[in-house]
Design a protein around this nucleic acid. Structure first.
Lengths: 257, 257
DNA sequence: CGCGATTTGTGCACGTCTTCACAAGCGCCT
DNA sequence: AGGCGCTTGTGAAGACGTGCACAAATCGCG
């Protein structure tokens, strides 16, 4: 009840930033999910949506959703629900999506190629502003209407565009150097697909996506499930009999659509 | 001191599963990172490594690392550190990587194509056993030595191979149906790249990777950083003066390599 | 105008994760 | 053998995230 909750017709952008509430990190990570669900609902013609309905569409608990949204301020009407359009506007504002951010993609190999062609970026507030690679044989290639430039042109690219986000899709061995180059031209957020740890100065955010790690996590759960179902069969010699517990580790379950 | 800590030369696999400790989910998510760091260290010739050294290589806090490893049992020698080879063996066992798991990849479009060619899977314990797609014009295409089959062949594929993990790289509209098909043939772990919520029966694990969401999270932090640095300049009219807080939201920082 | 149905926003309790700080253990050197 | 330095493993405390359950607020209807 301390945050401002006027309904900004168009959340003022030029100067005078309306003091972003500092959201819990877990909430920030879920806002994009809500946003996607809201867009779907809007396309389906809904004008308002209850926390119950939205939480189902986003695959989360409704109490969690309400608490998350309450951090943004008090949008939503008791007895009615949330105004879909208004909520979209608010979340997009908080996420900084009211401006289409320019992204530089470094590494146009196997994965980078796919990312360059991924239309999910464009459709959700981002614009791939440049494709870069260190391999001279790849420079000049045209992908999706963009010409691959040499990674050493980064300063030039940064001068042309206001780059804030860099995506690293190079082999692990090259990733740190690329990160340094990105930071040097003023990039302060990096999405790293290379399987390695990046060292960056304070104030630079790094998020990592490692496809193999996701599989390994799943593999663990497979292994655990297998060991549980194997027990009743031939009961190992001296086991302390794990309590036949239930999983409850699911990220999603029982979402009626 | 309750878990068994014999040093299994080759952790017994056939039958008699040695009772997996049920690890905290947060720990499970980090084990693959440790594993990768350990492989790097092994390649570099290290035989033992201290928690300090390993945590630096993996980009985490050393206390956290020790607590994580302590959940596996008591490997490691006080005053010395951890035996690199032994620790690799242990983590791989716990993660269920001692058997090379077969993965079915559904959706050979833009992203799926890249995933099919991604060698990080093969090098880290997985084997792409089948490529599937619903589009007849893609069926028959050969990618990386594998022929794309029709998704309706899933039962056949499942009969040939013991599939445990499915990867969905289809458009969002097709994802739920594919998930149902995967579940129907016995897949109990799904990695979903489609931007949508999947509904699966209990006992099936779903992990989601949404590239646009990652960017949106970064965008939020960009927005916040911008609003913070903008404040001192022209101080908005009626702001309650955010405490000039420090970020501390970094996933990684100051990792000397 | 008042009442009941509905839904938000939130205080509170609980569980999980993180971090500190230190005792216990190990090896090496004298 | 004994002591010293180093490192692990862990208890305890704090931070964080989750979920329940309910009061407060709003709408629609009689």
């Amino acid at each position: 009840m301390s945050q401002q909750h006027r309904h900004p017709g168009a959340p003022g952008r030029a100067g005078a930033v309306p003091a972003l509430p500092d959201l819990p990190e877990a909430t920030v990570a879920r806002l994009p999910e809500y946003l996607r669900a809201l867009h779907n609902l809007a396309d389906a013609g809904h004008e308002t949506i209850s926390s119950e309905g939205l939480s189902a569409a986003a695959g989360v608990n409704s109490a969690k959703l309400r608490k998350d949204l309450s951090h943004l301020g008090s949008y939503g009407t008791r007895g009615v629900g949330y105004d879909v359009a208004l909520l979209i506007e608010q979340i997009e504002y908080v996420l900084g999506l009211t401006q289409r951010r320019a992204v530089a993609l470094v590494g146009v190999g196997n994965l980078g190629h796919a990312l360059a062609g991924y239309d999910g970026f464009a459709s959700r507030g981002f614009r791939i502003a440049a494709l870069l690679d260190a391999d001279p044989s790849r420079v000049g290639e045209e992908i999706n209407g963009l010409v691959v430039r040499h990674v050493d042109d980064l300063p030039t690219v940064a001068a042309e565009e206001s780059l804030a986000i860099g995506v690293i899709a190079t082999p692990a061995a090259a990733a740190q150097q690329v990160a340094d180059q990105l930071v040097a031209v003023g990039v302060t957020s990096i999405l790293n697909f290379a399987p390695c740890v990046l060292s960056v100065p304070e104030g630079v955010d790094v998020r990592k996506v490692d496809l193999a790690i996701e599989l390994q996590i799943l593999s663990f759960h497979e292994h655990r499930k297998a060991s549980l179902t194997a027990l009743p069969a031939t009961g190992g010699s001296a086991l302390t009999a794990l309590p036949g517990g239930f999983a409850a580790t699911d990220t999603q379950e029982a979402i009626g659509t």
